Computed example of a mutant assay.
Amino acid sequence: MPEVVAQRLDVLAGVQQIGVVLDDTGERERAIPWLKRAAEAGGTRAMKRLAMVAFHQGKTEQTRAWLEHAAEAGETDAMALFGALLVGEGEVEKARPWLESAAEAGETYGAGILGISSVEHDRT
């Protein structure tokens, strides 16, 4: 049984890496199906990459959804980015737990956004 799990993880990592490499080399359209396959199988790196693709395409709902999925799966930088997105949308209280979790995990961006949003929130 552990061998089967290891094989599935290797396949997921491979599929995810193919998508990332294709995207990094400017072949975004070819990358997207690979990234989606990996993300749907639980690949948090692919989820985060799909969020960035959606962001650059101006697709706010997709950006939010992929970041939220990655954050819920424990990707600390996605927690920080999702928290920052929520702060930008004025949802400071909803953002706080994500930013705190990211900061506790050592994500400095999350800690910075948490500090800034706390100062701004205290002013209102």
Rank of each mutant, 00 (worst) to 15 (best):
E3C: 01
Q7N: 05
Q7R: 09
R8W: 04
L12M: 06
L12G: 05
A13F: 04
G14N: 03
Q16G: 06
Q17Y: 05
I18S: 02
V21I: 14
V21T: 14
D23E: 09
D23A: 13
E27W: 06
E27G: 06
P33N: 11
L35E: 03
K36R: 15
K36G: 00
A38Q: 03
A39G: 09
E40S: 07
G42T: 00
G42D: 08
G43K: 06
T44Y: 10
T44Q: 15
A46I: 04
M47N: 11
K48C: 12
L50C: 06
L50F: 08
A51W: 07
A51D: 12
A54E: 05
Q57V: 07
G58W: 06
K59Q: 15
E61V: 15
E61M: 13
Q62V: 01
Q62F: 11
T63N: 03
A65N: 14
W66V: 07
L67A: 12
E68S: 14
A71I: 05
A71K: 09
E75H: 15
A78D: 08
A78V: 05
A78S: 15
A84M: 08
A84L: 06
G88H: 07
E93Q: 13
L99E: 00
E100G: 03
E100M: 08
A102W: 05
A105Q: 07
G112D: 04
I113T: 10
V119S: 11
